[in-house]
Design a binder for these strands. Structure first.
Lengths: 226, 226
DNA sequence: TCGCGGCGCTAAGAATGCGTCAAGATCGGT
DNA sequence: ACCGATCTTGACGCATTCTTAGCGCCGCGA
């Protein structure tokens, strides 16, 4: 069953889309703002995302960028703005399609089918386990094992590790981590990161004081290196 | 270089598209009708196809079906018909996107970029790496390697290198660098640049006193030459 | 030939960011 | 209401990084 994540702050529209999509046999997930959209996307891995711009908390382009860092899930943007600049911005940020409101339900459904078709014909099964030394991180099961033994992580610890593992090899800025794990208001609380990274290293690294996987890039952020 | 096949029976529009696309660095192929479009597509294997509906010889949906039989090249449909039924038909036949005339050139170009990006990131490895001699600059991972070894850069050093590498070959003025890396208030502190460029050269250049990549343009700024 | 501005280079003090520890505060289940 | 787990908050020492100043070189024009 195809799973669609619909992100919109208008309960009316959300409901209308939910009914229409469910009637066509889609499984519908919803989120009312950007922060929760990112959470749901990471947690439930939908097959396609319908994203309304003009969300209350985050800028539309930021939501797209936040998703594109680790996911290639098709994104269809909805917007009331017909301005061509907005379209260009959203598409260049990584959106797959852009539909202006008011839209025909038939058209949206057709674009949805097109997006899903592309994604399924192009990509095989995405790998959900990241290996790193004696560490195995199962992103789908949300579980980490070290030398085969399960390591217990708190929700916050997992949030950080997941984000880093999804971007493995890439640098993740402190702001990115704080915004994704704690929320957009915590962007300057770099304190938290120091505490939690130390905790993660204590649990995961062979030698916590000389980290091999959870590497600090001073002044910039952190990097997970397999 | 990205190759675009434009299919349209209107010579005016064909010419306009050709000029605009060529100006953006695309290689442009053209076809005036469906039959020749299929031939060119089979023969030259373009990276993306812009297809006008309402061709003189074949029905639009038939052209799409004809292409989709053997190719997964992205197809962007142009049409004067705003009717939602046409859109649904074209998209379900296998088109990737549908743009109604009259359209903004900016929007079309953005949708073109989106289509090409999808196609390349899904199949090939979409890497954002700048190579220069024994230097590899990974802009996404924010990491530099020299002869395969990772070179550690401070945030400021990286800020400068990133800006220069993104504009590789082009001259970047001192004001530009200072404003982007330090902030708009530091536009006259050319001192900083001297210090940091020296540091970067020491870390990255084979012979720091005879720079090959980080070149000074006296009185103007700096240039990164691969 | 001389003076001048722009650049490369070095080095030291100042400022910032990080790891660490430990003690409250909060949450959630019994 | 209690208790353990988890999250927040503050403080300290240390290392790195940034800022700033000073000197010498080179090319250019007077």
């Amino acid at each position: 069953m195809t799973r669609v994540l619909v992100v919109d702050d208008d309960p009316q529209l959300l409901r209308a889309l939910k009914i229409n999509l469910a009637a066509r046999g889609y499984t519908v997930l919803t989120a009312p703002d950007g922060t929760r959209a990112l959470h749901v996307a990471a947690h439930d891995q939908p097959d396609v995302i319908v994203l309304d711009l003009g969300l209350p908390d985050l800028d539309g382009a930021d939501v797209i960028t936040g998703l594109r860092g680790w996911s290639t899930t098709p994104i269809i943007v909805l917007s009331a703005r017909t301005d061509s600049g907005d379209k260009v911005e959203a598409l260049d940020a990584g959106a797959d399609d852009y539909v202006t409101k008011p839209f025909g339900m038939d058209e949206l459904l057709a674009r949805l089918r097109a997006a899903v078709r592309r994604a399924t014909t192009h990509s095989g099964a995405g790998e959900a386990v990241v290996h790193a030394g004696s560490l195995d991180i199962d992103l789908a099961a949300k579980q980490v094992t070290r030398d085969g033994v399960v390591v217990h992580l708190t929700p916050t610890e997992w949030g950080i590790l997941e984000l880093l593992a999804r971007h493995q090899g890439k640098l993740v800025t402190q702001r990115q981590l704080l915004a994704e794990v704690w929320g957009p208001h915590y962007r300057n609380e770099t304190n938290y990161l120091r505490v939690y990274l130390a905790q993660l290293r204590r649990k995961l690294e062979p030698d916590a004081s000389h980290p091999r996987h959870l590497v600090t890039e001073p002044g910039m952020g952190y990097r997970f290196t397999p």
